[in-house]
Amino acid sequence: MAKLCPKIILEGTRLTFKTELAFALNEHPRIVGPRKYRYHSPVISAEWCAFTNFPWGRGLINFEPQEEALAIETYQTWVRLFELQRYYSWIIDRFHLSTQMYQLQRYDKHYDFRWLEDRMRPLGFRLVFCTRTPESFAAARIERLKVSGNPAQYDDLQAFVAEQKLMQQLVAATTLPTLTVDISDNDVPAAVERIADWLEATGGLTMESMPSPT
């Protein structure tokens, strides 16, 4: 059988179950093949607060202006790693569109990531935009509060509705192949099957051999 090496970016505001989808995709036999034991293929995220030495600090999405060079170098490092390990599956829980959204809202600054997409597109990266209806955020919040270590971030649901509208504009401008998945029903398994169907239909589960990276 052909080697499965899908590359999926999950984008969307909080409470759209991106992390749940990422874990489910990473273990689904249609996405990563049949497995008899749990395997450590990577689920990574721009949401990691790796720029500060305290919980819920800053990272690749919510960096401050003086950390811009650090953030851009981090993105350059990630894309180089993807190029070097192109025949592997990569599932990303929030990435450059989340950075664009936050930086626009916080600092009114637009970061042009066309250079990033131009390097990721030949590797087969595809983007899944996770959405939900405005009225469904409340039920999603109830579920998230059962496990959240930082519940205060979910107090203002209208902020998520506003973020989603901005994210829709950013998704419309991306050059990556895109699927929009409505998760209003909170049905993660069904959403995973829709994503798998799309990947199969568009050739997103495998990739052609390419010249060795230099």
Rank of each mutant, 00 (worst) to 15 (best):
M1R: 12
A2E: 11
A2L: 00
K7I: 07
K7S: 02
I8D: 02
I9V: 11
I9P: 01
L10E: 07
R14G: 11
L15G: 03
L15M: 04
T19A: 05
T19S: 15
A22V: 08
L25D: 05
Y37M: 14
H40K: 14
S41M: 14
V43P: 02
V43A: 10
I44Q: 12
W48E: 14
G57W: 12
L60T: 10
L60P: 00
N62I: 06
N62L: 07
F63S: 02
A69Q: 13
L70M: 14
I72P: 01
T74N: 05
T74E: 00
Q76A: 10
R80G: 06
L84H: 04
R86D: 07
S89D: 00
W90I: 06
I92D: 00
D93M: 04
D93V: 04
F95Q: 10
H96I: 09
H96T: 11
H96N: 08
L97K: 10
L97F: 04
L97M: 11
S98N: 12
T99Q: 13
Y107F: 15
D108H: 15
H110L: 15
F113L: 12
R114S: 15
W115H: 12
W115Q: 14
E117P: 02
F125C: 07
F125G: 10
T131V: 08
T131G: 02
R132P: 00
P134Y: 04
S136P: 03
S136W: 09
A139Y: 01
I142E: 13
V147W: 08
N150H: 05
A159R: 15
A159S: 13
F160S: 05
A162F: 04
Q164K: 11
Q164R: 10
L166N: 06
L166M: 11
Q168W: 01
Q168H: 06
Q169A: 10
L170I: 05
L170T: 03
L176Y: 03
T180P: 00
D182P: 04
I183D: 08
S184L: 03
N186D: 11
V188Q: 08
P189A: 04
P189Y: 05
A190W: 01
E193V: 09
W198M: 10
L199P: 02
E200F: 08
A201K: 15
T202P: 02
G203V: 08
G204Y: 07
T206F: 03
E208R: 14
E208T: 14
S209Y: 08
P211F: 05
S212H: 11
P213G: 01
